[in-house]
């Protein structure tokens, strides 16, 4: 499989009122063609910052690029000028955001908002862009597209707005679609529809997707590979099967343990991860998870573990994988039920 995007050792900081918050600290991952990569983590883990920095959408200041590279099509996006980025945004890489209620311009018709990028990137006439807009709305499953295209966002429901956002994002057939928690703000039934739509469209168009989420249900539904982020670092990556069936990082265990399962006994409690994420203005020297890790060792406090390669696709950064560490089994709570997570591909 061909890599379409490589993020190497990316670091991003934010200057805040009293300190420099190191939101992303040396993140490395890649995205293959036509696949869906899920970046999972709790709020503050740096996943959204990572996503937005691929588009170079981090406002600087207060944001600050500290180091690393983002290679797309053999070129480093971090070195591109604003003008050069304009020709990549919306055309090669596009993005949809968490809250469809606020991510559409309230004073502009949906049609105009779709047409904008078509006119900019494909030199379409207004009329042609309008025509294409109707097709796109149809493609994302909005009924009566020729009426809907002239309406304003407030006339759409939440789910329809997210569909419209997807139509805008896919207008110029981008190679990569970054979806930043696209279903978090939606009702559960609508969530499933939107995920189905994204999977369908991916099969039709072959767009690679980076799905930012904190919801393992979404991951199971749509992702091929997973990167688990914690405290501004990727702590474990692997295929979706590896992450669900052979997780090796205690944080991944915690995430899996806190996910409700259908076969779970009702009086069995969900396993919460105690404690709170590290303060990134003052990040720990060693493993970011040490303070909350039930298996923490002396070494974890002061030394960041290197990645251990567990397979061609799975890599985990944890001292437990060191030969000198005590052997620890995957805890009961992190074992996902008997059936395969999904069989759609």
């Amino acid at each position: 499989m061909k890599k379409i995007l490589e993020v190497n050792d990316l670091s991003i900081s934010f200057d805040t009122y009293n300190a420099e918050v190191k939101a992303v600290r040396g993140v490395t991952f890649h995205l293959n063609e036509k696949e869906t990569l899920a970046i999972v983590g709790e709020s503050g883990s740096g996943k959204s910052v990572t996503a937005q920095s691929i588009m170079q959408l981090i406002p600087m200041p207060p944001g600050k690029f500290v180091g690393g590279s983002i290679i797309f099509n053999g070129e480093d996006l971090t070195q591109k000028s604003e003008k050069q980025m304009e020709n990549i945004r919306g055309k090669e890489i596009s993005m949809i955001f968490q809250d469809p209620m606020t991510s559409l311009n309230p004073t502009m018709t949906i049609g105009k908002q779709i047409a904008e990028s078509l006119i900019k990137h494909q030199n379409m006439s207004k009329k042609a862009a309008h025509q294409r807009g109707v097709e796109l709305l149809k493609l994302v499953g909005i009924p009566n597209p020729d009426v809907r295209i002239n309406q304003y966002p407030h006339q759409y429901s939440g789910g329809m707005r997210q569909r419209a956002m997807i139509a805008i994002a896919l207008a110029c057939n981008p190679k990569i679609l970054i979806a930043d928690e696209p279903t978090t703000a939606l009702d559960v039934t609508i969530q499933a529809q939107i995920l189905d739509l994204m999977r369908d469209l991916q099969q039709k168009t072959g767009t690679a997707i980076i799905m930012i989420t904190h919801d393992l249900g979404v991951v199971a539904n749509i992702a091929h590979r997973v990167a688990v982020m914690y405290g501004g670092k990727v702590v474990e990556t692997g295929t979706v099967d590896e992450i669900f069936y052979n997780p090796r990082h205690p944080y991944t265990w915690g995430l899996l343990g806190s996910m409700p399962k259908l076969d779970q006994n009702k009086d069995e409690e969900l396993q919460a991860i105690p404690g709170s994420p590290p303060d990134l203005a003052n990040p720990p020297k060693g493993c970011p998870f040490v303070a909350r890790c039930p298996y923490a060792m002396k070494v974890c406090k002061d030394h960041m573990p290197e990645y251990t390669k567990l397979s061609d696709t799975q890599k985990t950064a944890c001292w437990l994988l060191d030969e000198r560490a005590p052997k620890v089994d995957i805890p009961e709570t992190a074992v996902v039920g008997g059936t395969k997570v999904h069989d759609s591909f």
Partner: peptide, 26 residues
């Protein structure tokens, strides 16, 4: 700092278009 300004930027619109077409009117 509104989300739809981020959307407009992510479409590849120039700073000027984002400011005058999207931000100013609102």
């Amino acid at each position: 700092s509104a989300d739809y300004i981020k959307t407009a930027k992510s479409k590849g619109l120039s700073e000027r278009v984002v400011t005058y077409r999207h931000a100013l009117r609102n």
